[in-house]
């Protein structure tokens, strides 16, 4: 074998374990889900193999699924905006701080050491009727009776922000770190105020990081089902809860497969749009 041929083959040899894992753990199960989505659930709960469009017809035409999907996108959108508004100043502060950057980044990573479910449930002890917040307000005499703060859409968004904020901060931080600080100084030396130099130079240059963080927050937020289950009220379900119910409660794997593919298609389209305009490189930097 020639040296050129060996060199051409080498990357594929090195990539083969990862590609095999992706094929077996992602594409093969995905193919199963696609096949399942065309099957039918019988009255006893058993699946009937075949090629039926009933599940897709139901998923695409029933306003129930459309409304929940829109509500899910709305909640994910609000969460992303809140994460951006809270995350950008934090990332800016970390990127521009001198000396204690490692400690700040470590603090940012700390929540990842605790289970997401535990972190979500911790809000019950903070905002519950006998939680820390109500107890403090009662003992300060600000309220005479506990205020019901939990189990609504706001607490679902709060739980999602708590979960997703570090992803936003990390992405923006990586982006800000790559900006030459002397550019701001140069702008100031030419007469721009600090605020003006931020708006004209830093913010535009950090937008790819903000967009990458936004994409991650949106996709992860739209696909969650634990947060609405723990912190939501009776009507605060998101689309992933429908998938869960179809597959687990109703044992309707074919419909659940169609619904999960529908969510995947919507979120996949968003990723493709992002990739078209900004490319995946920034996202990889943030994740790295």
């Amino acid at each position: 074998m020639s040296v050129e041929a060996r060199e051409a083959r080498q990357p594929w040899v090195l990539l083969s374990p990862a590609l095999t894992a992706v094929l077996l753990l992602l594409f093969v199960p995905l193919a199963f889900i696609v096949v399942y989505s065309f099957w039918l659930r019988t009255a006893t709960g058993a699946d009937q193999a075949g090629f039926y469009l009933d599940n897709w017809n139901e998923a695409l035409t029933d306003p129930f699924y459309r409304d929940i999907l829109l509500n899910t996108l709305k909640i994910a959108g609000i969460t992303t905006v809140v994460c951006a508004l809270m995350g950008y100043p934090a990332a800016y502060f970390i990127a521009r701080s001198k000396g204690n950057k490692v400690i700040l980044l470590l603090l940012l990573m700390l929540p990842f050491w605790i289970s997401y479910i535990i972190r979500t449930m911790s809000w019950i002890n903070i905002l519950g009727v006998s939680g820390a917040f109500n107890t403090a307000l009662l003992s300060l005499g600000i309220i005479s009776e506990p205020v019901q703060m939990l189990y609504n859409e706001t607490t679902v968004i709060l739980g999602l922000v708590h979960f997703l904020l570090p992803f936003m901060v990390l992405n923006v931080y990586v982006s800000l770190e790559g900006i030459d600080e002397t550019l701001e100084d140069a702008a100031c030396s030419l007469g721009a105020t600090r605020w003006k130099s931020f708006l004209e130079i830093t913010l535009p240059l950090s937008l790819p990081g903000l967009a990458a963080g936004g994409l991650l927050c949106f996709v992860l937020g739209a696909g969650t089902y634990i947060t609405p289950l723990v912190l939501g009220g009776p009507t605060d379900a998101m689309f992933a809860n429908l998938v869960f119910e179809a597959i687990i409660t109703q044992l309707d794997w074919p419909l659940g497969s169609a619904l999960s593919l529908m969510l995947l298609a919507v979120l996949g389209a968003l990723v493709l749009i992002y990739n078209h305009y900004l490319g995946m490189a920034q996202l990889m930097k943030g994740l790295g």
Binding site: R41, P234, T235, A237, T249, Q250
Partner: peptide, 14 residues
Amino acid sequence: EQEWSKTFGRIQKG
């Protein structure tokens, strides 16, 4: 079961 579990799932969500 099939009909009622589905209907309840919808009512539960408003």
